[in-house]
Write a protein that binds this DNA or RNA. Structure first.
Lengths: 218, 218
DNA sequence: ACAGTATTCAATTGATTACTTGAATATTAC
DNA sequence: GTAATATTCAAGTAATCAATTGAATACTGT
């Protein structure tokens, strides 16, 4: 390979490495995951991740430099969002791959999620079939802002933190199906536990709105 | 968020971070890209990347620990391969995303590829249409081993380094279409240049066999 | 102008990473 | 057993990275 080609290859992979570096931090992966559910300001990210304000801001600067996020100021608030729809797909793929190849990921899924909710979740196809026949009451238990940004059609928004106050508004003639951010989010599990404690027939799906919107890759 | 959930989230993103860390090095991205065209031993990777043997081996150990590659010994040769088909898709997505969001990637594409081959490449759809009508002579100009691992159906294998010796075996009654590893590989460009120097009507496609096999994501 | 709030910046510290060099290991052929 | 070949390992060095702390900046409401 002549040295021009070698230098060009080094440069191009150096650029792709910028994306890889941005994804090398568990903190930044969590921030990106949260942003794939909708735009958020620093304060919201601080609350969700339990990181310090300065640390969140540092990581956001790193993501800005890699061009994975962009922001707009709304008063004193800097509202960050993903810069490209492919980033959501990339995160999903990293998570699917992680589940395929890393035993530790499967272990963590098993030890936490399934111990708390011993019932198998509904599959997306089962959900679609039941929704077509109007057989379920679908609730989105993420924060309201995320619901407004995008949600599964036909779902009602009842954030899990407000579920206790909204039990009376739930149609209990049909089974309740809860969903949240996806396979690594606890909100739907917590919601189902709470509903069952109140004698309401409730199940959940593993997927979130990203998976709903994603064309199947197989 | 209670501290159990926080700890679990830290653990799960820590695991996904293993994949991100593995992808944070330009050198490892190139190695993975080469392996997505077929299994290779250390020596082959050394030749293609112009890195030292020890360095290639170190990076392969890092990829092994992240479970992105696996290997089998064949005599003194350790033959490495990708551990999961999703890794190819992940690399393609990083490259597509890179092209979407990083001006430097587009600049590098422009400054090298298109300056050498001022003719627009054929699209995949155009290729398919012409192959259906038997209008083109499709050649795969990657190393023979990569062709054997997987290639576009109907293509003939003429590695670019052997092209000069095989000019007489090319059917010149139809235009020749060359392809190689994908959008960041020079082999097809070099092959088209050489063929045109010998008066042979030749064009190329940007895509490689991975894109051919990939279901469209849009 | 000032206080409050939200965010970013800069410096420091400790940890991690990439490459090189030289040694060690594994396998094969004779 | 020995030499050759392929690969991995270990240590050193320089560079990079992550989190914290404290300061600085930006914006709004009064």
């Amino acid at each position: 390979m002549d040295s021009d080609t070698r230098a060009w290859k080094d440069a191009i992979y150096g650029q792709f490495g910028r994306i890889g570096k941005a994804l090398s931090s568990p903190r930044r992966l969590e921030i990106l995951d949260l942003l794939s559910q909708g735009p958020k300001n620093v304060e919201t990210l601080v609350l969700e991740t339990e990181m310090s304000v300065a640390n969140v801001s540092q990581h956001l600067q790193t993501l800005l430099q890699a061009r994975l996020v962009q922001f707009e100021k709304q008063g004193t608030y800097a509202v960050y969002q993903l810069s490209n729809a492919k980033i959501s797909a990339l995160l999903l793929l990293i998570q699917e791959l992680g589940e395929d190849i890393l035993a530790e990921v499967r272990l963590l899924r098993d030890e936490f999620l399934l111990n708390r909710d011993s019932f198998e979740p509904l599959t997306l196809d089962e959900l679609k079939a039941r929704m077509d026949m109007d057989e379920v009451y679908l609730i989105d238990v993420r924060p309201k802002e995320e619901f407004e940004y995008g949600h599964i059609p036909g779902a009602f928004s009842i954030p899990v933190k407000e579920l206790a106050d909204h039990l009376s508004s739930i149609d209990t003639n049909r089974p309740v199906v809860a969903y949240c951010r996806g396979r690594y989010c606890m909100y739907a599990v917590e919601a189902v536990e709470m509903l069952r404690e109140h004698g309401i027939h409730a199940i959940r799906i593993d997927e979130g709105v990203r998976e709903w919107n994603q064309e199947p890759i197989h």
